[in-house]
Every structure is written in structure tokens, then in C-alpha cells.
């Protein structure tokens, strides 16, 4: 039997959740016995080249490219998992929701902020290559159907390990109380 294929990506996240995957330490070696990575920052494969069994999403959607990529993952992954606070709720980037408009954000970031240097013309980046910012930062489940959510900021490596091994083996996963209690 072919090993299940897994793809991962970070949208509007900080790569902290991917650091948590790296935190599996030597279990990464066990993991690659069980699965094969397709597109992922972990192996630096840039594009989804095949239909995958599991897609892992870190981060919410802050710009048009996040949306494109999330939809592409949904289309190509049988099971899609939102990992971490930002993917599930928008997280820190969503702090801009309801507190500042896009114009205000860009004005502050590129023109008004005290640390802005050498932008005498008051330019706001507008290259066609750049993705466009969305009016709000959206959690992934508002854009596409998400099958599972792994909570945490970032989720512990153990939790990610438990989820992946449960999914691969088809066994029911025991969720400890600590998985839900974060205060």
C-alpha cells in the first residue's frame, strides 16, 4: 500500500505551528516511515503535485493568496485540518478586525509609523505580483469546509503527533482535558 500523502502550508501564521511539527524531533523519522510529504515548508516542495490524503493548514486568511491556496488545499486534500489559533480563529493577525480599516493599516504600516524610513513619496506597495489584503482576517472554516481542528498556540507536538497517527491508523483519539483548557 502506498503511504498516505500529506501536505502542509502556512497562511497568515507565524510558522510557529510548523515549528511545533519540527518539535516532533526524532519522531519526524517515524512519521516519514508512515507518510510521505508533498508540498510543505518542511521539505521545501513548493507546489501541490498530487492529490493528498491529509492537508494541514496553519494561519488564517489575510490576503487573496491565502484564499487561493486554502481553496487549492481543499480541492486536493481528502482531509483538511486547521492547526492552531490563527487557522481556527484568525489569531493575532485578526486583531486588526474591527479596530482598523485596511486604509488605516496600510497608512500606519507604510507612511505614518515612526520606524518608516525612505518613503518620502508616501508609496503604498501596489505591485501586481502582491496579493491583495482582505477587509478582515478570516478563520479557515469560514472559507472552506474544515474537517478537524487542532487547538493551541501553537499546538503541542504531542497533540499533532496523536492526531496524525490516529488519522493514519484509523483509531479513535483520546483527547485529554488539557487539550481544551487554556487558562
Amino acid at each position: 500500500m502506498n503511504k498516505p500523502l500529506i501536505a502542509t502550508t502556512s497562511l497568515a501564521g507565524c510558522f510557529g505551528c510548523h515549528m511545533s511539527i519540527m518539535d516532533l524531533d526524532d519522531r519526524i523519522l517515524q512519521l516519514i516511515e508512515l507518510i510521505e510529504f508533498n508540498k510543505s515548508p518542511i521539505n521545501d516542495i513548493k507546489t501541490l503535485s498530487k492529490e493528498c490524503d491529509i492537508g494541514i493548514i496553519e494561519g488564517g486568511c489575510a490576503n487573496s493568496d491565502n484564499i487561493r491556496l486554502l481553496k487549492e488545499f481543499r480541492k486536493n486534500c481528502r482531509v483538511l485540518i486547521a492547526v492552531g489559533e490563527c487557522a481556527i480563529m484568525g489569531g493575532l493577525p485578526a486583531m486588526r478586525n474591527n479596530s482598523a480599516s485596511i486604509s488605516e493599516c496600510l497608512q500606519e504600516a507604510y507612511i505614518d509609523c515612526v520606524s518608516v524610513q525612505a518613503n518620502d513619496e508616501g508609496l503604498i506597495p501596489n505591485d501586481e505580483e502582491l496579493p491583495m489584503l482582505l477587509d478582515q482576517v478570516y478563520p479557515c472554516h469560514e472559507i472552506v469546509k474544515i474537517d478537524y481542528f487542532i487547538p493551541g498556540c501553537a499546538p503541542r507536538a504531542d497533540l499533532i503527533w496523536d492526531v496524525l497517527t490516529a488519522l493514519i491508523s484509523g483509531k479513535k483519539m483520546e483527547l485529554s482535558y488539557e487539550c481544551f483548557k487554556f487558562d
Partner: peptide, 9 residues
């Protein structure tokens, strides 16, 4: 969702 950012840029 992108209307405002398109307008500014």
C-alpha cells in the same frame, strides 16, 4: 473583501 485594498492601491 478586496475592494478597499484595491481602491487604495
Amino acid at each position: 473583501a478586496v475592494r478597499e485594498s484595491c481602491k487604495i492601491t
